[in-house]
């Protein structure tokens, strides 16, 4: 059923909190995700022409790099690595547009999933997602998306410390955090409150579950005068041999 479920009181809302301050853009999350999910719930994550001239394939994580503050010049702008994956929205239009009932949002934990046996591959859900979270598998003919590693987080055969999504598990700088964002006392909710975690494109009204933590403010570096000084017109404090060379060269 592609109508959205009624939220039960006390239901959890599982998601990720991604720290743009500490992400170093190493793509380990994308690779670990690809590795786990290629054998997981949504398998396979088909690649085509993987070693050829036009490689293509399905990825649930894609890591962009942005420069923010481009107008500030010099050292004023910030380079920010930006992991992008499914945000498991509270108002997921990707679910409601689905004509077959293949897409659904779980009432118990809010995870958005695709039942691949029902999917007709009409691609409309990928058009309805503003964030580019859904990718079409042209080999299987159905839509694929992040499962929040549903086959890890509820997997009792794994050690409890490993019951987190593969991208969170692998991150070398702990820039990715997993938890229940419906519970205000959870570690992720506290992190969001402390650091001012925010939604992507809030103006569209999708109410993403995943939050992003902004880069921490840092002191604005003044432009270094050794770089900016116009030495041709400067009175340089020169002595001895350098002073003599300067005088000769200035003739």
């Amino acid at each position: 059923m592609t109508s959205l479920p009624n939220r039960e009181p006390g239901a959890s809302r599982l998601g990720l909190v991604i720290d743009l301050d500490t992400c170093v853009g190493c793509h380990a999350c994308a690779v670990a995700c690809k590795q786990w999910n290629d054998g997981g719930h949504m398998a396979p994550l088909t690649d085509t022409d993987a070693y050829g001239s036009g490689p293509d394939g399905v990825w649930f994580n894609r890591i962009h790099s942005f420069e923010a503050g481009t107008e500030q010049g010099g050292c004023g702008s910030r380079t920010t690595n930006f992991p992008r994956s499914c945000l498991h929205c509270e108002q997921p239009a990707c679910v409601t547009v689905c004509p077959t009932g293949a897409s659904y949002k779980r009432a118990e934990d809010g995870i958005v999933l695709v039942n691949e046996d029902l999917c007709i591959g009409c691609k409309l859900c990928s058009w309805a997602c503003p964030y580019g979270a859904r990718e079409f598998d042209q080999d299987v003919g159905v839509m694929k998306k992040c499962t929040l590693c549903i086959d890890r987080i509820h997997n009792e055969t794994l050690a409890e410390s490993e019951r987190v999504p593969a991208c969170v598990m692998v991150c070398p700088t702990s820039a990715r955090h997993f938890g229940d964002l419906a519970d205000p006392s959870s570690a992720v909710s506290k992190l969001v409150a402390e650091r001012g975690g925010y939604d992507l494109m809030p103006e569209l009204g999708y109410e993403p579950t995943n939050k992003y933590l902004p880069p921490r403010p840092r002191p604005a570096l003044a432009l270094d005068e050794r770089v900016t000084r116009d030495s041709a017109n400067d009175d340089l404090p020169l002595h001895g041999l350098l002073k003599w060379a300067d005088r000769i060269l200035a003739r």
């Binding site: 743009l20 853009g25 793509h27 994308a30 990825w59 894609r62 890591i63 962009h64 790099s65 942005f66 420069e67 923010a68 503050g69 481009t70 107008e71 500030q72 004023g76 702008s77 910030r78 380079t79 920010t80 930006f82 992008r84 925010y198 939604d199 992507l200 992003y212 902004p214 880069p215």
Partner: peptide, 15 residues
């Protein structure tokens, strides 16, 4: 990107 509070945003590197 939610980075508008820093200033204008441009893509440096695609994934």
């Amino acid at each position: 990107t939610g980075l508008g509070h820093i200033g204008r945003v441009r893509l440096l590197d695609a994934p």
